[in-house]
Amino acid sequence: MTTTTRWAALVAGAGLLIAAVPAHAQQQMTITGWGGAYQASQREAYFKPFTEKTGIKVVEEEYNGEVSKVRAMVQSGSVSWDVLDVDSQGAIEGCDQGVFEVLDWDRLGGRDAFLDGSTTDCAVGSVTYSTLFAYNADIFKEGPTRIADLFDVEKFPGKRAFQKTPYVLFELALMADGVPAAEVYDILNTPEGIDRAFAKLDSIKDHVVWWETGEQPVQLLANGEVVMTTAWNGRIFNAIKDGKNFKTVFDGQVLDYNFWVVPKGTKNLDLSYEFLKFAITPEVMATQSRFIAYGPTRTDAKPDIDEFTFSQLPTAPQNNTNSLVQNYQFWGDHGEELRQRFNNWLNQ
């Protein structure tokens, strides 16, 4: 070893040592979201203001809804996430399997102000969003306007992209088949109803491309792979803001919530509660809609947003005319069986 390299090694070693000393001055916590436009909106609405107010640093992580990651952390006793954002399937399964903390609602100020279904024993609603369909307005000048048009390849020829799960898709298929939103789950609860949903999907199967992550529908629509796609409305909102000529159709949209949850056994439980309390304050919650067209889950949070964002909000009165609220009890009971049958159907 030459003298220079020895010095270099010493300096590097010292640097590592300094980096390894924890910064006692500042508390920090890890919050995990879904990446993309959605997490960007959370950064602006929650993470930055939270750090500004409390001095607690937020380290961000991303995932794609795999509650299994949390389960592995909880089972191995090394929980490194303090708060995460889950969809309703994740919220039910994680809570059922004891992966999430059961929330102390007194500490969070009660559940009364929240919309029906946007709180569970383990989870508190973060946003209201919808799964709707969007089309490329360069291709259709006279665009589709009703949910039935999504399945009508005669009138609107071209490929469609659907999310690769029966969840929400069955609801859309039945509504497109003429079932009123209010009766969708009564019908889905019967074997004939499931067959009817499959029959409707059969009619369009050869025209479908399947997506799995939230940004895929935007890409598929943008690069012309499909002419229409189902999507989470915020992703389309963001693409339109970025200059894409997409149009959303709110008819037959399926409203759903995302939730904040706390992994069981986090070492920063108090910080987690502090963050949750901050994030569900009506004034703070109201700000998120400025950054993405997702609505608050509290009735007393009044978003102050521009006209375009308002036009893309699923819960705005002009959009919320023929909508369905996703029924998580139904999917908790029948999800596994239906996903298996759906995969079998996809395989044929």
Binding site: G65, V67, S68, E93, E336, N343, N347
Partner: peptide, 25 residues
């Protein structure tokens, strides 16, 4: 997963599905 269609998925993708989404290990 990226270039195949639904009838081209192999065993691993179902293993991932059961691990990640179904929590049915």
């Amino acid at each position: 997963a990226l270039v195949g269609g639904p009838t081209d998925q192999m065993v691993s993708s179902y293993i991932a599905l059961y691990i990640n989404r179904e929590l049915n290990w």
